[in-house]
Design a protein around this nucleic acid. Structure first.
Length: 323
DNA sequence: AGAGGCCAATTACCATGGAA
DNA sequence: TTCCATGGTAATTGGCCTCT
């Protein structure tokens, strides 16, 4: 479940086998010296997806501190795939990193986590392809579509990110027939909570050191599920219902639906947000969105399929499997 | 200089209850 | 019923400080 991470260790005795290269850092105290290096996973012959190291030497007290950053998921597997670290693999991964750094696991576990990306890739059917269009709102985040296939809910200290993992793995090139077949059949849906500043997010209390992250691993699944649950979801993929106007309220409802459809669900919600400012705005918005919902079928039951797929994946990740 | 921690201020969310 | 005010709680941000 853990992908990109930034860890800082306060007191670390540098491993001489690592090829440290000195680095210039402007505007910092004269007693400090900086060195950078790349850390590879020696369990593999390949040298890919290194973790980036920054070593700080303090001449005054002779203490070294170390920053580690990169995707431990890619580093551990040495590939970018749909696999996600389960708890056993996360443990092993930390052990390997400690070995490569030539330090004790318990030293590494004291490391503070300042940036963290928690994520999963779900294997969905291609009928779910446009799922991100159904994620119309999340709290007061800025909603942003990037390159048509990615969705960001943007906050100051973190983002919720959704994208097509299969396209990302293949650099958007799925021309070979074999890849095209996979693409036409499945949708590898990636969901990440990306904290740029752990101390400014909900992660700060339980996931701000490696040790806490390891001990509180079982609290990651409910957290991810809550994020998905809290997204305002509107099925914009399923077909619309046959028009059946029996009375005046039906008539008005249908006209409003046509208006929302013509204007766009997202745009309509934005306008609603701008114009409506009562104390029970949340409920009013629900009513407003229900106008749209009441006019479309739910033939694909997308929200439930998504929740089920997420729950299953999170359950497997708890230890048994990584896919 | 820029990243990040800490804590306080601000804002969003939600339940409750009385008024319209 | 629906509407609005209120208050508690949690989420998010801003400011100020330290460290690399």
């Amino acid at each position: 479940m853990i992908d990109k991470i930034k860890i800082s260790l306060n007191d670390y005795s540098p491993n001489d086998n690592i090829n440290w290269k000195s680095k210039e850092v402007k505007n910092c105290p004269p007693e400090k010296y900086f060195y950078k290096a790349k850390l590879y996973n020696s369990k593999f012959a390949t040298k890919k997806f290194p973790l980036k190291l920054l070593l700080t030497a303090n001449e005054k007290n002779n203490i070294f501190s170390l920053n580690i950053r990169g995707s431990i998921r890619k580093w551990y597997y040495q590939e970018n795939s749909r696999k996600d670290l389960n708890s056993n693999e996360f443990d092993k991964c930390l052990k390997f990193i400690a070995e490569e750094l030539n330090t004790e696991l318990k030293t590494l576990l004291k490391g503070k986590i300042t940036q963290l990306e928690v994520g999963v890739t779900l294997l969905l059917k291609s009928e779910m392809r446009n799922l991100i269009d159904c994620f119309v709102k999340y709290r007061n985040a800025e909603r942003k579509i990037v390159k048509k296939t990615s969705l960001y809910f943007h906050f100051k200290n973190y983002n919720l990110i959704f994208y097509d993992k299969y396209l990302e793995i293949n650099n958007n090139d799925i021309r070979p027939q074999k890849k095209r077949n996979v693409f036409n059949k499945f949708y590898l849906f990636r969901f990440e909570v990306n904290a740029k500043k752990v101390s400014g997010t909900i992660l700060k209390s339980k996931f701000n050191t490696l040790e806490k992250l390891r001990n509180n691993w079982n609290q990651l699944p409910p957290m991810l599920e809550k994020y998905i649950d809290d997204i305002v979801f509107v099925d914009v993929i399923s077909k619309e219902k046959e028009t059946d106007i029996k009375d005046y309220p039906d008539f008005i409802n249908h006209i409003a639906y046509m208006g929302i459809k013509k204007y766009g669900v997202i745009e309509s919600i934005n306008l609603f947000n701008k114009f409506v400012n009562t104390s029970n705005k949340k409920k009013k918005l629900e009513d407003f969105i229900n106008i749209y919902r009441s006019n479309v079928t739910n033939e694909l039951d997308l929200k439930r399929k998504l929740s089920t797929a997420l729950a299953k994946k999170l359950d497997r990740l708890y230890n048994k499997s990584n896919i």
